[in-house]
Amino acid sequence: MTAIVEGIIKAFQLIFSIDPELYRITGLSLYVSGLAVVMASLWSIPMATVLGLKNFRGKRFIRGSFNAFIGFPTVVLGLVLYLLFSRSGPLGLFGLLYTPLLISIGQAILITPILVSFIISAIEAIDMDIRDLARTLGSTEIQASLSILREASGGVILAILAGFNRAFAELGVAMMVGGNIYNQTRMLTTTIALETSRGKIPLSIALGVILVSIVYILNISISYLRKR
């Protein structure tokens, strides 16, 4: 109990002490997960738009697969990426192992099913007459699809937010392909795991408070902005 109280006190001391290491770790975590969300959005939004708007053979199977992969174990994904990008792996020549970029790639792959599934649901909830409306007002097919996406923007933002939360809070990929290297790939989640194993519970709690606070503030802020 004392450790927990100490941890909470230490957490606030750390947060307000402007400890450069702490801010560096937090900044890297935000950067890596932010980049992952950008990458995942780049391929997930067009993919989900097509899946949401078009009917074709095998669509149900593809949708079902994305739904199933929402709960994909991060450690398994980390392992697969490790094997692919390790020096002897097929993609080892890129030299990405133990870099923030590979963590971002891994997190982007991890959150793709979340983004695709949530965005498809958001698009399917939109009245499809909107598409005909856009077309009869002079839109091309692409402009009409963008109009539907704009109507579904609330759901798209929610999907991106859910993806960011998942990426920001995951440990498996960051640990397996990042290696938790000091000053290079050390992130909030990997540091919590490391410091806990080293018995530095107050530091772990402090990092945990920061992690949860960022997620909380971000989600509340976006909800507020959406209402406006």
Binding site: D129, L133, T136, S147, E151
Partner: peptide, 11 residues
């Protein structure tokens, strides 16, 4: 041509 639908549809 442009069509006004039976059921009003709006952005």
């Amino acid at each position: 041509a442009t069509l006004v639908f039976q059921k009003s549809v709006f952005f």
